[in-house]
Amino acid sequence: MKSTGAQPVRGNRTGMQTSPELAEELIEGAANAAPSSDGGSEIIAESRTDYISEGFPLGSMPAMPVSEEADADEDQAAMAVFLDKLSERLAFERMGVRLYEALLNKCEALGETKPGPTLEDIRHIGGEELDHFLMLNEAIETLGGDPTVESPSADIAAVASMGIMQVLTDPRSSVPQCLQVLLTAELTDNAGWELLIELASNLGYDDMREQFETALTHEEEHLQNVRDWLSDSVMEKARVDES
């Protein structure tokens, strides 16, 4: 069984103290150089503002079936928001299945360690992520939406999550390092479900709200577990006795 960290450690070279003499020369050179233009980082903001003010959106939701009700426009706008956030959650849960597959893969390869999740713990979470994904597919279909759409919020979530996947699938990352990024995922996921519950409740979708509350219960458990495994792993490595 190979383990991460089994290769000889050569030592981190990123800091100034790696080579103090070179560092001194570097500092001296930069300190004596003059910038070619005045101002500071706020100048970048001016450039960004120029583009922001053009007002191009990242993307939109597909056109929804038009209701014949008097307040159709308002309903349609609310539904678009709801579907956008459902699509985001769906994409996140689907990615979550793949994230936990990668964690399972890692823990199987390295062998279960204490502290940390058991293989069964990971399978349990992965199974629930899958259930949530499937439930969201049904929810979107029930509302007349298309679960294959990548909504703007789903797109943003995918961009924001790219690093999480990179860490999980990197063969060099340790289990605690994976748990650290999964904490980011689970914190986001919990907040995402809370928002969906609020939305479903405000829009009067009580059956969905109940389903989402069940999902949130699962996610709260995932979050607590990830927190505990991470904390225990870090403490163990630092050999800090919490008692």
Binding site: Y100, E101, G126, G127, D131, L134
Partner: peptide, 16 residues
């Protein structure tokens, strides 16, 4: 995606 058809190691005995 193939996860719609539960094609994952998590499908069997999936929780909840």
């Amino acid at each position: 995606t193939e996860l719609v058809e539960k094609k994952t190691v998590f499908a069997k005995g999936a929780g909840a």
